[in-house]
Amino acid sequence: MELLPFFEWAETTFLGYIGKTYGGVYATFGQSLHLMALAVLGGSVLVADLRLLNVIMKDVPSEIVTEQAHKWFRIALVVIICTGVFMAAAVAQRMYHNDFFWAKMSALLVGIIFVFAIKRPLLKGSHADLNPIVIKMVASASILVWFSVAATGRWIGFSG
């Protein structure tokens, strides 16, 4: 499947035009909002996963913590994707040729599938019934995948 025409088209859209033409809008509504949402996303991932790893809030039931953290995870993810699409549209052709962009998209896709198809269904019931090693593996994988998404995201800007 040839994706380049899609990226070329993205730059010609209204969204791409705004981001390309107005640096201030790109930097504040794109980059800064993206980073604020990253804070909330990171917080929700760490609050939930460090709880599952028994590092923090050992005196609060992990079911409550993961449930509440997931609520904010979803909100942050929506903001991150919206601002991310906006930023990518403005520099779409450069993104197409950037290795870190594709690394980030792969990690993001894996992260989303992992959270919604595997982690959430697993943690739905009582956590006491689950094997503690599996819980810890899931929590570690979640932290790793979301920090990788963030780090590869920053490296998009350093390369190409």
Binding site: L35, L38, A39, V40, G42, G43, V47, R154
Partner: peptide, 8 residues
């Protein structure tokens, strides 16, 4: 990345 830890 520390945004995720500290500001999170």
């Amino acid at each position: 990345l520390t945004i995720m830890v500290c500001l999170g």
